[in-house]
Simulated assay, not measured.
Amino acid sequence: MTTPASPPSPEVAYATAPPLNLEADELMRLRRSIPQREWLLRYAALGDRQTLNAHPDDGKAQTGALRPIQKLIGYDTEHGTTTGPVAPDDAQWAAFPRGYVRQEYAAWAASQ
C-alpha cells in the first residue's frame, strides 16, 4: 500500500505566485473571462495565502480561507478536474483541506 503524497508547503506551492494585492486585483478583473475552475483555484489559493499567519483559533480568518477551498474540492469532485496526484475525495483533505489547494495550485503553476 502506498502512502498518498504530502501536499507541498506554502513556500513551494506559491513560489511563483504574484503578490497578494496583484493577484486579488487580477482575479476581480478576470472574474468572468477565465474558466471557472481556474478562478476557483486561484481564489482559494489567495485565501489560503492571505491567512497563512492567522492564528488557528481565529475563526473568521479560518472560515474565510476554508470556504473557497471547499468549493474547489466540491467542483473537482463533481467534474473530475483535479490535476494533482491525490484525488479531492481523499481522506487527508477532510483533515487538512488547505493541503488540497496547495497541491492543485502547485500543479497548475507548473503547467503555466
Rank of each mutant, 00 (worst) to 15 (best):
T2D: 11
A5E: 15
S6N: 11
P7G: 01
P8V: 06
P8K: 03
P10F: 02
V12L: 15
A13W: 01
A13L: 01
A15V: 14
A17Y: 06
P19F: 09
L22R: 13
M28N: 11
R29N: 05
R29L: 08
R31E: 12
R32V: 10
S33P: 00
I34F: 07
Q36E: 14
Q36G: 02
Q36D: 07
R37W: 05
E38R: 13
W39F: 14
W39V: 01
L40H: 00
A44N: 01
Q50R: 04
T51W: 12
T51Y: 14
L52R: 14
N53D: 13
A54C: 04
A54E: 07
D57M: 12
D57W: 07
G59C: 01
G59E: 08
K60I: 05
Q62N: 13
T63M: 15
A65E: 09
P68S: 06
I73W: 05
I73N: 08
G74R: 05
Y75Q: 12
T77Y: 08
H79L: 03
G80M: 02
G80T: 03
T81H: 04
T83H: 10
T83R: 14
G84S: 14
P88C: 05
P88M: 02
W93M: 11
W93I: 08
W93R: 02
A94Q: 13
A95N: 02
F96D: 15
P97A: 09
R98E: 13
R98Y: 05
G99D: 06
G99K: 12
Y100C: 07
Y100A: 11
V101E: 07
R102D: 02
Q103G: 15
E104I: 09
Y105E: 01
A106N: 11
A107G: 04
A110L: 10
A110H: 13
S111G: 12
